[in-house]
Design a protein around this nucleic acid. Structure first.
Length: 451
RNA sequence: GCGAUCGUAGCUCAGUUGGUUAGAGCGCCGGUUUGUGGUACCGGAGGUCGCGGGUUCAAACCCCGUCGAUCGCCCCA
């Protein structure tokens, strides 16, 4: 914002975000936690393209869904091919599974994270470029796969320290079940079509299942008596769902049955689930009008719609921004030591010392601007444990001044042990800090003493 | 895509019924003697009041448009 350059500053694209500070720390914390947990569950990392041929999404997700019909960022490339910025991970992963012959690794557990794009009206917790963590188990028809996948989701949320969120679980049955139930719903709601909300009259044509979770009171009075999925479940579908729920109980994951939970995308079969904040909880308040933080289900028919062999699979995705909103405020990392050189000679010396300390694995920064007072101010503002002061006197004497910031205590230390590369982080830290501000270090059970 | 609210310094906001050089707190920069932070005191920079147009002698304030954010619907992570 310079006065001499009145050139217009371009603004960010609507619905995109520049994430910084505490928000960026929370974002990183979500990703790091996910990466750690996915390794515990032995999910393999995959990296996927950010764009695909448009048909990958339109065929996999379903032409009539909102995502495909009005929310995709599609464009023609220079070869006049229609490409689309990924609105979700699953379709692209399914495509990769088929085109790369990953069948040889079946059953395959994969995890990834990154940006997704959806042309929607931005709101709190909802962006045009947003980010998800994602986990899939491909070529596993067993309910144990659903259980493992959900237990992992639960652990990620727990390790993030998020509370007040519950797993809502439902079954959509197998293909036949789903079709029979759908037909029953169309008949039931069709009989009272004129009394339904405008939205639901439209849903009757496009996606009758969605009428079940309409919030409009005109619809709600009919929803209670609508045909229930349970009445249409085949024996196999019922047994499958029971295996999943008893598995959740055994894994110690709390869940509630959500009969009207139907997911928007065409490919879901059997298990469907969402982690949703409890009504009135702190988590619900932080999310604005968004509710689902993690959602997914089983998609046994998806591979076929892309031209692959029938391949059962389950997966979920969670919004990183939404999870980050529920994570307690995260502070940036603090340095342990801030070096404050005073004088040109000291500048050079400290450039060497700080490299040595960092190679040992100590978190260090250097204050190189302003006079000594300014440098101390900056060091203090960084939240460092201690300042290492080096001036002409110290250079001459082969010493270094350590000042413990919280207590204000300081001491003069010999530089040899600190500089020596054969001394590790723990030993070096002890050499610098022992005895200052009440800090005590020990060595083989005895009080610390430098060699 | 529909309905509504809002938009003043880096941040949080004040600005009376339209009236002279638009304010505060925090933050930032500098100073209160030479190599020592956190507290205190002093000083300074920074805004064409989101942008464009209109009404008026006069607009941050009124009107229209536009962009953006937020809330509800829709949908979803």
């Amino acid at each position: 914002m310079s006065k001499n350059t009145p050139a217009k500053v371009p603004n960010a694209i609507r619905g995109t975000q520049d994430i910084f500070g505490a928000d960026a720390e929370a974002f990183a914390f979500v990703v790091e936690t996910f990466e750690r947990v996915r390794k515990l569950y032995r999910f393999r990392r995959v990296e996927m393209p950010v764009f695909e041929k448009t048909e990958v999404f339109s065929r996999a997700i379903g032409e009539t869904t909102d995502v495909v019909s009005k929310e995709m960022y599609s464009f023609l490339d220079r070869g006049d091919e229609s490409l689309t910025l990924r609105p979700e991970f699953t379709a692209g992963i399914a495509r990769a599974y088929i085109t790369n012959g990953w069948q040889q690794h079946a059953p395959l557990k994969v995890a990834t994270h990154g940006p997704l794009f959806r042309y929607e009206r931005p709101q709190k917790g909802r962006y045009r470029q947003f980010h998800q963590i994602d986990a899939e188990i491909i070529a596993a028809a067993e309910p144990q796969a659903d259980v493992e996948l959900l237990a992992m989701a639960d652990q990620v949320i727990r390790e993030l320290g998020i509370t007040g969120v519950t797993l809502h679980l439902n079954t959509l049955g197998d293909g036949e079940t789903r079709n029979a139930w759908r037909a029953a719903l169309i008949e039931y709601f069709g009989a009272v079509k004129g009394e339904l909300s405008e939205d639901s009259q439209e849903r009757l044509e496009k996606n009758p299942l969605r009428i079940l979770d309409s919030k409009d009171p005109r619809d709600r009075k009919f929803v209670a008596d609508a045909p229930k999925i349970d009445a249409y479940l085949s024996d196999e579908a019922r047994a499958f769902f029971e295996a999943v729920t008893s598995g959740m109980d055994a894994a110690g994951v709390k869940w509630v049955r959500a009969e009207s939970l139907v997911r928007g995308l065409d490919y879901y079969r059997h298990t469907a689930f969402e982690f949703i904040p409890d009504e009135g909880s702190e988590a619900a308040g932080k999310l604005g009008s968004q509710s689902t933080i993690l959602g997914g289900g089983r998609y046994d028919g998806l591979m076929e719609s892309l031209g692959g062999a029938p391949t059962p699979a389950v997966g979920w995705a969670a919004g990183i921004e939404r999870l980050a909103m529920l994570v307690e405020g995260r502070e940036g990392h603090r340095p342990e030591f801030v070096l404050v050189p005073i004088g040109q000679q000291a500048d050079v010396y400290c450039s060497g010392l700080i490299a040595t300390l960092r190679r040992k694995g100590l978190h260090c920064d250097m204050a190189f601007r302003g006079n000594a007072k300014k440098r101390l101010q900056r060091a203090d503002a960084s939240g460092a444990t201690a300042v290492l002061l080096v001036g002409d006197d110290e250079l001459r004497d082969g010493t270094i001044i350590v000042k413990h910031l919280a207590s204000g205590e300081q001491a003069t230390r010999d530089r040899k042990q600190i500089e020596a590369s054969y001394n590790g982080a723990t030993y070096t830290r002890a050499c610098l800090l022992h005895g200052l501000g009440g800090l005590e270090f020990s060595q083989s059970g005895k009080p610390f003493e430098p060699d």
